[in-house]
Nucleic acid binder design. Structure first.
Length: 752
DNA sequence: AAAAAAT
């Protein structure tokens, strides 16, 4: 009966069959054929559900009709990406449509009843026959057709996926959408969902994996005693601050693995029981609305230590609690960029901040933002602050840097980035989160889904502003800024602010105050620069020689393929190196960065994904195996070393024909260095590397993290070099890759 | 011009 799923025997999506329609958008196709019915999307979770369905139901999936529908899906997907590429054409259309779109979503209120019933029956197992045959056409006709185009199909899947989770806790009756509005006000108490809403954030933010033991005992013991508000603080205080920099990514990786893979098994035992036990506790003692939480916390201030009288942060006008918290980490003297921008930002002005790499810009915009958001009231789905960053890693870093500070200010924050599970992000938004730290794509996605509404954003921050304003990012950034109220405060920060930013500045900033603590050139005095002109044939061996040294090294290359290739070459020559680029799964990216931070892999071979903002302690050498494309890139790449006053060297390898361009670039970048001819073994090279040479014996990357949670499955997705689909057919929120070591196979990004 | 950013 069951042939292979057309969709996947091997987990891959097959090529579309309907070539004819491949470049036709759904809307176009609909226009041509009004009878056209959207391919159903409910089939996406097939992997997760199928095995749970009674066999008799399963059979129905392989009717011709259903198969065809499923084959339609890829075609649809292509449409969507086509649409993405056409972004430029669409934003206007989109934006105009947005209101309408929202309305449509609100209109749903009329519908949920039957929808939900549909869905619940779906859950009960009669879905296949029922849904398949009846619901689609029914729903589709009812629903306003026009909007469908805008709403990605996968929305539906996602939605139903977490709704399902929610639902499993009962109270289906209480859930209809109209509750949405009330929700933030305190219907919460009644609703088990509250429980869910709270828990994830707790899980997410604070539990270092190594604390896991603590946590579980902690969980069981402390939890029932209430005082949830104490918990995070407890955790946070215990955590040695100094380690933070080394650990965040590490935690995250574990966490996601844990969450994604473990949860399904884990939940069966613990979660429901927790829910049940928790009821009385929840009802009676728990304080579960935000304001109460705030006041409670205010009543029991934690001793954050004393602040010296001459603490200069206090002088900038920051709240005592914040100053105390900073002081506890030994941060008592503002960097110039902070001293310059904080007062203006606190005064509510729009600020353009430029400070050299590693000069503390994160706090420069972070502290005023937290100050502003503290004490306000955030409605469900309507965050009041937004920090946009260009890469996921940077988003994580900013999040982790601000988190302890946000905590003392009683500001909730949430990382919104791609490659991470949707449900927790949506839950957090629904619960109401003050400040988002986001990469543009995912945030737009969530806004389109209606999970987030930027209409209440008081502070919008662009980190790496000039990069956010370049061609690739601009549309997304303007889309997001357009959604924020124009009267809101806007802060733009970068090490290089140039003409590209003008458009954003003119459009979105009112009377901006500009602070440039440096010229925007390479003025970090502790950084030395070397330009080496080399023979093409020597590139590999020279790179290996340079990278084979004590201390952390980042090797920058131009392309993702190049990153993979050079990392492999280095390992073949005995240099422990790993590649980092955007073609890897987020899990791989996290793991690689963790290994680089914890020292198990001292050489990182990266594309420009790591060029900006990423802070790793003690990177003492940056090698540019491919010269940067422009002077700004040079500065940002170079800025990974010599951070916060440390020392560092930047070596750029140049093929003869790249020499001229580099000289020009060096001038624009303010780099004082003359190209020098170099060969492997040269004195200069030896000097830079401290004399150590690659062993010549191939090395292998360290094994994935040893922590494997029992019951298998854990870590499969990210941990193995050959991530099998295995039995973890759940958690399909993560990036889906068929396994070949996490490298892209679709070639999509490599085409010119 | 590549990379990044949503699935």
């Amino acid at each position: 009966m069951t042939q292979h799923d057309p969709e996947s025997a091997d987990g891959r999506i097959k090529k579309p069959r309907h070539k004819k329609h491949q470049n036709q958008s759904y809307g176009e196709r609909l226009a041509a054929d009004p009878a056209y019915v959207a391919p159903r999307t409910d089939s996406t979770p097939v992997k997760g559900y199928r095995s749970e369905q009674p066999r008799s139901d399963r059979g129905q999936r392989s009717t011709d009709r259903n198969r065809d529908e499923r084959n339609d899906r890829p075609y649809n997907r292509d449409d969507r990406s086509g649409a993405r590429n056409n972004r430029d054409d669409r934003p206007a259309f989109r934006r105009d449509d947005r209101a309408q779109d929202n309305r449509a979503r609100y209109n749903r209120d009329d519908r949920p009843q039957y929808n939900r019933d549909d869905r619940s029956s779906y859950n009960r197992g009669d879905r296949p026959s029922y849904n398949r045959d009846e619901r689609p056409s029914y729903n589709r006709d009812d629903r306003s057709q026009g909007n469908r185009d805008d709403r990605p199909q996968y929305n539906r899947d996602d939605r139903s996926r977490f709704n399902r989770d929610d639902r499993s806790q009962g109270n289906r009756d209480e859930r209809p959408r109209f509750n949405r509005d009330d929700r933030s006000q305190g219907n919460r108490d009644e609703r088990p969902r509250f429980n869910r809403d709270e828990r994830p954030s707790y899980n997410r933010d604070d539990r270092p994996s190594y604390n896991r033991d603590d946590r579980s005992s902690y969980r069981r013991d402390d939890r029932s005693q209430g005082e949830r508000t104490e918990r995070p603080r407890f955790n946070r205080d215990d955590r040695p601050q100094g380690n933070r920099d080394d650990r965040p990514q590490y935690n995250r990786d574990d966490r996601s693995r844990f969450d994604r893979d473990e949860r399904s098994q884990y939940s069966k035992d613990d979660r429901p029981r927790f829910g049940r036990d928790d009821k009385s506790y929840r009802r009676d003692e728990r304080v579960n609305n935000r304001d109460d939480r705030r006041s409670e916390q205010a009543e029991q201030p934690v001793d954050l230590g004393t602040v010296a009288d001459d603490n200069q942060f206090a002088a900038l006008g920051l709240a005592p609690r914040l100053v105390q918290r900073l002081a506890r980490d030994g941060i008592t003297t503002p960097f110039p960029i902070q001293a310059a921008t904080i007062p203006d930002a606190l005064a509510g002005k729009d600020v353009l901040g430029r400070g050299q790499t590693g000069s503390g810009k994160t706090l420069g915009f972070g502290l005023p933002t937290l100050m502003r958001l503290s004490g306000g009231h955030t409605e469900s789905r309507r965050p009041r602050g937004m920090i946009l960053v260009p890469t996921r890693e940077l988003a994580m870093q900013v999040h982790d840097a601000l988190e302890p500070l946000a905590h003392v200010m009683n500001v909730s924050l949430k990382l919104i980035a791609g490659g991470l599970p949707y449900p927790k992000q949506i839950d957090a938004l629904r619960r109401g989160v003050d400040l988002l730290i986001a990469t543009p794509g995912r945030l737009i996605d969530l806004c389109e889904q209606g999970a987030a509404d930027l209409g209440a954003v008081e502070v919008a921050v662009l980190d790496e502003a000039d990069h956010m304003c370049d061609m690739g990012f601009m549309p997304a950034v303007t889309t997001l800024l357009d959604m924020t109220p124009p009267e809101g405060q806007r802060l733009l920060f970068s090490a290089t602010l140039d003409n590209d930013v003008d458009k954003i500045v003119r459009t979105y900033l009112k009377d901006p105050v500009q602070h440039s603590t440096e010229s925007g050139q390479a003025s970090v005095s502790t950084m030395e620069h070397h330009l080496l002109v080399i023979e093409p044939a020597h590139k590999q061996s020279l790179t290996a020689e340079l990278a084979s040294r004590d201390g952390r090294t980042i090797v920058f290359v131009r392309t993702k393929l190049g990153a993979d290739r050079i990392a492999t070459q280095l390992r073949d020559r005995g240099v422990m190196a790993a590649a980092l680029h955007g073609g890897l799964t987020q899990g791989m990216r996290n793991r690689t960065l963790d290994q680089f931070k914890d020292g198990s892999v001292p050489v990182l071979v990266a594309t420009d994904v790591a060029a900006r903002g990423i802070h790793v302690d003690d990177v003492t050498l940056v090698v540019q195996a491919d010269p940067p494309a422009e002077h700004k890139d040079y500065l940002h790449r170079a800025g990974r070393t010599a951070r916060a006053g440390g020392k560092g060297a930047v070596v750029t390898l140049l093929l003869p024909h790249q020499r001229r361009g580099m000289i020009r670039m060096a001038e624009s970048a303010g780099v004082k260095a003359d190209p020098v001819r170099a060969r492997p073994g040269d004195e200069l090279v030896t000097e830079l590397t401290g004399g150590s040479k690659p062993s010549g014996y191939p090395v292998k990357l360290p094994a994935p993290k040893p922590q494997r949670f029992n019951k298998g499955g854990g870590g499969k997705r990210y941990g193995s070099t050959r991530p099998g689909r295995g039995h973890d057919s759940r958690g399909g929120n993560g990036p889906r890759r068929s396994g070949n070591g996490g490298r892209r196979t679709d070639g999509k990004s490599y085409q010119h």
